[in-house]
Lab assay of single mutants.
Amino acid sequence: RPFRVCDHKRTIRKGLTAATRQELLAKALETLLLNGVLTLVLEEDGTAVDSEDFFQLLEDDTCLMVLQSGQSWS
């Protein structure tokens, strides 16, 4: 499924495809050149996407933000 993913400053944006939350996090880690533990949130309001069940309910092309440890949505 297609998703739009950005870093916490919204300066890097990438289109990625993934079937699972874990797959998307792995691709974001590599594509956005990030490291460490990542958190996935909705870009629009910062809602945490912390379960596979919730991830599977997201629509195609949902905009997501990837946060590294110590970063927060704004």
Results as ranks from 00 to 15, higher is better:
residue 1 R to V: 02
residue 1 R to S: 13
residue 1 R to L: 01
residue 2 P to T: 15
residue 2 P to I: 15
residue 2 P to Y: 15
residue 3 F to N: 01
residue 3 F to I: 06
residue 4 R to E: 05
residue 4 R to T: 09
residue 4 R to N: 15
residue 4 R to P: 04
residue 4 R to V: 09
residue 4 R to I: 15
residue 4 R to D: 07
residue 5 V to T: 04
residue 5 V to S: 01
residue 5 V to A: 14
residue 5 V to P: 03
residue 5 V to Y: 03
residue 6 C to A: 04
residue 6 C to D: 00
residue 7 D to R: 02
residue 7 D to M: 01
residue 7 D to V: 01
residue 7 D to L: 04
residue 7 D to S: 04
residue 8 H to M: 10
residue 8 H to L: 05
residue 9 K to H: 09
residue 9 K to T: 11
residue 9 K to M: 15
residue 10 R to S: 03
residue 10 R to E: 00
residue 10 R to G: 07
residue 10 R to H: 04
residue 10 R to P: 02
residue 10 R to I: 03
residue 10 R to W: 02
residue 10 R to C: 04
residue 10 R to F: 06
residue 11 T to P: 00
residue 11 T to H: 09
residue 11 T to F: 11
residue 11 T to Q: 08
residue 12 I to A: 04
residue 12 I to P: 04
residue 12 I to L: 10
residue 12 I to K: 10
residue 13 R to N: 12
residue 13 R to W: 12
residue 13 R to G: 09
residue 13 R to M: 15
residue 13 R to K: 15
residue 13 R to A: 14
residue 14 K to H: 09
residue 14 K to L: 09
residue 14 K to S: 11
residue 15 G to S: 14
residue 15 G to W: 14
residue 15 G to Q: 14
residue 15 G to M: 13
residue 15 G to N: 10
residue 15 G to R: 14
residue 15 G to Y: 15
residue 15 G to C: 13
residue 15 G to A: 14
residue 16 L to R: 00
residue 16 L to Q: 02
residue 16 L to E: 01
residue 17 T to A: 09
residue 17 T to S: 12
residue 17 T to V: 13
residue 17 T to C: 08
residue 17 T to R: 08
residue 18 A to E: 02
residue 18 A to P: 00
residue 19 A to K: 13
residue 19 A to L: 08
residue 19 A to S: 14
residue 19 A to I: 11
residue 19 A to F: 10
residue 20 T to R: 04
residue 20 T to A: 01
residue 20 T to V: 00
residue 20 T to C: 07
residue 20 T to L: 02
residue 21 R to M: 15
residue 21 R to L: 11
residue 22 Q to H: 10
residue 22 Q to Y: 10
residue 22 Q to M: 15
residue 22 Q to G: 15
residue 22 Q to R: 07
residue 22 Q to C: 10
residue 23 E to M: 06
residue 23 E to L: 02
residue 23 E to N: 04
residue 23 E to T: 04
residue 23 E to H: 04
residue 24 L to P: 03
residue 24 L to D: 00
residue 24 L to K: 02
residue 24 L to W: 00
residue 24 L to T: 00
residue 24 L to A: 05
residue 24 L to E: 01
residue 24 L to V: 12
residue 24 L to I: 11
residue 24 L to N: 00
residue 25 L to M: 14
residue 25 L to S: 02
residue 25 L to I: 13
residue 25 L to Q: 11
residue 25 L to A: 04
residue 25 L to F: 05
residue 25 L to P: 00
residue 26 A to Y: 13
residue 26 A to W: 13
residue 26 A to Q: 15
residue 26 A to N: 12
residue 27 K to P: 02
residue 27 K to A: 09
residue 28 A to Q: 02
residue 28 A to M: 07
residue 28 A to N: 00
residue 28 A to D: 03
residue 28 A to F: 01
residue 28 A to R: 01
residue 28 A to G: 06
residue 29 L to Q: 15
residue 29 L to E: 15
residue 29 L to F: 14
residue 29 L to D: 09
residue 29 L to T: 13
residue 30 E to I: 06
residue 31 T to Y: 12
residue 31 T to N: 10
residue 31 T to V: 11
residue 31 T to F: 11
residue 31 T to C: 14
residue 31 T to M: 15
residue 31 T to S: 14
residue 31 T to W: 10
residue 31 T to Q: 15
residue 31 T to D: 11
residue 32 L to T: 09
residue 32 L to E: 04
residue 32 L to P: 07
residue 32 L to F: 14
residue 32 L to G: 15
residue 32 L to K: 07
residue 32 L to S: 07
residue 33 L to A: 14
residue 33 L to N: 14
residue 33 L to M: 15
residue 33 L to R: 11
residue 33 L to F: 11
residue 33 L to Q: 14
residue 34 L to M: 12
residue 34 L to F: 09
residue 34 L to S: 05
residue 34 L to T: 07
residue 34 L to A: 06
residue 34 L to Y: 09
residue 34 L to G: 10
residue 34 L to N: 01
residue 34 L to D: 00
residue 35 N to C: 08
residue 35 N to V: 07
residue 35 N to K: 12
residue 35 N to R: 12
residue 36 G to R: 13
residue 36 G to M: 01
residue 36 G to V: 14
residue 36 G to K: 08
residue 36 G to C: 02
residue 37 V to F: 09
residue 37 V to M: 15
residue 37 V to P: 10
residue 37 V to Q: 13
residue 37 V to H: 15
residue 37 V to K: 13
residue 37 V to S: 11
residue 37 V to C: 15
residue 38 L to Q: 08
residue 38 L to Y: 08
residue 38 L to K: 04
residue 38 L to I: 05
residue 38 L to V: 11
residue 38 L to A: 11
residue 39 T to D: 08
residue 39 T to L: 06
residue 39 T to W: 06
residue 39 T to N: 10
residue 39 T to Y: 08
residue 39 T to A: 09
residue 39 T to H: 11
residue 39 T to R: 13
residue 39 T to C: 08
residue 39 T to K: 11
residue 40 L to C: 11
residue 40 L to I: 12
residue 40 L to W: 03
residue 40 L to S: 03
residue 40 L to E: 02
residue 40 L to Y: 02
residue 41 V to W: 05
residue 41 V to N: 01
residue 41 V to G: 12
residue 41 V to C: 07
residue 41 V to F: 03
residue 42 L to K: 14
residue 42 L to W: 01
residue 42 L to I: 12
residue 42 L to A: 03
residue 43 E to R: 01
residue 43 E to C: 01
residue 43 E to Q: 00
residue 43 E to L: 01
residue 43 E to Y: 02
residue 43 E to N: 05
residue 43 E to S: 03
residue 43 E to W: 00
residue 44 E to A: 15
residue 44 E to M: 10
residue 44 E to V: 08
residue 44 E to K: 11
residue 45 D to R: 00
residue 45 D to N: 12
residue 45 D to C: 08
residue 45 D to T: 11
residue 45 D to E: 07
residue 46 G to V: 01
residue 46 G to F: 01
residue 46 G to L: 01
residue 46 G to Y: 03
residue 46 G to W: 04
residue 46 G to I: 06
residue 46 G to R: 00
residue 46 G to M: 00
residue 46 G to S: 01
residue 47 T to K: 10
residue 47 T to S: 11
residue 47 T to C: 07
residue 47 T to Y: 05
residue 47 T to Q: 13
residue 47 T to V: 07
residue 47 T to F: 05
residue 48 A to N: 14
residue 48 A to G: 10
residue 48 A to Q: 12
residue 48 A to I: 13
residue 48 A to T: 11
residue 48 A to M: 13
residue 48 A to C: 12
residue 48 A to Y: 10
residue 48 A to V: 12
residue 48 A to K: 14
residue 49 V to Y: 00
residue 49 V to G: 03
residue 49 V to Q: 00
residue 49 V to P: 01
residue 49 V to F: 00
residue 50 D to H: 08
residue 50 D to G: 08
residue 50 D to E: 12
residue 50 D to N: 08
residue 50 D to R: 06
residue 50 D to K: 07
residue 50 D to P: 09
residue 50 D to C: 08
residue 51 S to Y: 07
residue 51 S to R: 11
residue 51 S to Q: 07
residue 51 S to T: 09
residue 52 E to T: 01
residue 52 E to Q: 07
residue 52 E to D: 08
residue 52 E to R: 01
residue 53 D to M: 09
residue 53 D to Q: 12
residue 53 D to S: 11
residue 54 F to H: 14
residue 54 F to G: 13
residue 54 F to R: 12
residue 54 F to V: 14
residue 54 F to P: 05
residue 54 F to L: 14
residue 54 F to E: 14
residue 54 F to Q: 13
residue 54 F to T: 13
residue 54 F to K: 15
residue 54 F to W: 11
residue 54 F to N: 08
residue 55 F to S: 02
residue 55 F to G: 00
residue 55 F to N: 00
residue 55 F to V: 03
residue 55 F to D: 00
residue 55 F to H: 02
residue 55 F to T: 02
residue 55 F to Y: 03
residue 56 Q to G: 11
residue 56 Q to W: 04
residue 56 Q to L: 09
residue 57 L to C: 14
residue 57 L to P: 06
residue 57 L to K: 12
residue 57 L to M: 12
residue 58 L to E: 04
residue 58 L to P: 02
residue 58 L to R: 02
residue 58 L to N: 05
residue 58 L to A: 01
residue 58 L to W: 01
residue 59 E to Q: 11
residue 59 E to S: 12
residue 59 E to H: 07
residue 59 E to F: 04
residue 59 E to Y: 06
residue 60 D to T: 14
residue 60 D to C: 05
residue 60 D to H: 13
residue 60 D to V: 09
residue 60 D to F: 05
residue 60 D to G: 10
residue 60 D to K: 12
residue 60 D to I: 07
residue 60 D to A: 14
residue 60 D to L: 06
residue 61 D to K: 09
residue 61 D to S: 08
residue 61 D to W: 05
residue 61 D to F: 03
residue 62 T to R: 09
residue 62 T to F: 03
residue 62 T to N: 07
residue 62 T to K: 05
residue 62 T to S: 09
residue 62 T to C: 05
residue 63 C to A: 09
residue 63 C to Y: 08
residue 63 C to D: 09
residue 63 C to N: 14
residue 64 L to V: 09
residue 64 L to G: 02
residue 64 L to W: 03
residue 64 L to I: 05
residue 64 L to C: 04
residue 65 M to K: 01
residue 65 M to V: 11
residue 65 M to R: 06
residue 65 M to N: 02
residue 66 V to P: 00
residue 66 V to T: 03
residue 66 V to H: 07
residue 66 V to C: 05
residue 66 V to E: 03
residue 66 V to R: 02
residue 66 V to Y: 02
residue 67 L to F: 02
residue 67 L to I: 05
residue 67 L to N: 05
residue 67 L to S: 01
residue 67 L to W: 00
residue 68 Q to T: 08
residue 68 Q to S: 13
residue 68 Q to K: 11
residue 69 S to R: 13
residue 69 S to H: 11
residue 69 S to Q: 14
residue 69 S to W: 08
residue 69 S to C: 14
residue 69 S to N: 14
residue 69 S to D: 10
residue 70 G to F: 05
residue 70 G to R: 06
residue 70 G to Y: 03
residue 70 G to M: 06
residue 70 G to Q: 07
residue 70 G to I: 13
residue 70 G to L: 04
residue 70 G to V: 01
residue 71 Q to Y: 04
residue 71 Q to K: 02
residue 71 Q to S: 04
residue 71 Q to D: 07
residue 71 Q to H: 04
residue 72 S to C: 14
residue 72 S to I: 14
residue 72 S to L: 09
residue 72 S to R: 11
residue 72 S to N: 07
residue 72 S to T: 12
residue 73 W to M: 00
residue 73 W to E: 02
residue 73 W to G: 02
residue 73 W to C: 05
residue 73 W to T: 02
residue 73 W to N: 08
residue 74 S to I: 06
